[in-house]
């Protein structure tokens, strides 16, 4: 018997009738009890092993999804292009530029590594990451676009929390697909405002507009879907952010037009309830 359940039966027969007596029964009983306890031990051990394996598997899964989110947050294409510009600076003997670029790059990489496993960081930290990212891209493109990152003074950037790297994919998209296809006067604006417990973020470029950018993307779209993935992840995360009344965070794209009705850039408005 194990845990009040019959685990096995010892069946004994002998050619002679009434051969088995009480002593036999006692011995058999002892053997059965010993077997039962051994079986119990083995079963317990097996269960323990199973639990351990499951725990390890769960840990692995958690690690994988964290790595996945890190990879999504930081476009490898950006990483290698950044390293490539460092190589150029070294070859061109631009020691000071290379030194500055490399230290900014390390700061950004460190911030991403430190924050990647957090669901949310303070607005101050997010602003720092955005600043570093945009500055690095600006150096890489030799200052061919100008940018402003503004945050309303009334916001307590140390207290307000934002989902980690929520805004970065939109900024990347604005630079790579909005501004880089434009010839001159490339401008990028990122702003944060607070209104009645909601944070309003604007990412605006004066680039070629979404329609044109889509046409240009053309046949390597398959390989460059990273940005759209990043944006999809950010959209999912925004939807999950609800305030007490159940209102969700949202994203709105606006195609900007000049007076003549030509495409004049893209504005992305990202709104979500403030969390502290």
């Amino acid at each position: 018997m194990i845990d009040d359940k019959v685990a096995g039966v010892i069946d004994s027969e002998h050619t002679r009738k009434h051969f088995f007596n009480h002593r036999h029964l006692k011995i058999l009983n002892t053997i059965a009890a010993l077997c039962a306890s051994q079986m119990q031990l083995a079963m317990a051990e097996e269960q323990k092993k199973k639990a351990e394996i499951e725990l390890l598997q769960n840990k692995q899964k958690a690690l994988e999804s964290r790595l996945q989110s890190l990879r999504l947050q930081m476009n490898p294409h950006f990483l290698f292009n950044a390293l490539n510009s460092v190589q150029q600076m070294i070859l061109a003997n631009e020691e000071m530029v290379a030194t500055k670029y490399l230290s900014r790059f390390s700061k950004l990489l460190r911030a991403i590594l430190v924050h990647s496993d957090k669901e949310a960081i303070t607005l101050k930290e997010e602003l720092e990451i955005l600043n570093l990212y945009v500055e690095l891209e600006s150096i890489r493109f030799k200052g061919t676009f100008s940018y402003r990152i503004v945050c309303d003074d009334s916001i307590d950037v140390d207290e307000v929390k934002v989902p980690t790297l929520l805004i970065q994919p939109f900024v990347e998209n604005a630079i790579w697909h909005g501004l880089m296809h434009k010839e001159v006067d490339r401008q990028l604006l990122i702003s944060f405002e607070e209104k009645e417990e909601w944070l309003h973020c604007i990412v605006e470029d004066n680039g070629v507009g979404r329609q044109k950018a889509k046409e240009i993307k053309g046949i390597v779209a398959n390989g460059s879907s990273h940005q759209s993935k990043g944006i999809a992840v950010s959209t999912e995360r925004l939807k999950a952010m609800k305030n007490k009344t159940g209102a969700e965070g949202s994203i709105a794209f606006t195609d900007l037009m000049d007076k003549a009705g030509n495409a004049a850039g893209t504005r992305v408005a990202i709104d979500f309830p403030i969390q502290t």
Binding site: H77, F80, L83, V220
Partner: peptide
């Protein structure tokens, strides 16, 4: 190219020369 796994696969299937940046 700096990074484009899909394009690199397509290129390697064609036995074409390519270099990864930084070179």
């Amino acid at each position: 190219t700096a990074y484009n796994e899909y394009a690199i696969q397509a290129i390697r299937f064609s036995a074409f020369d390519y270099l990864l940046k930084p070179i």
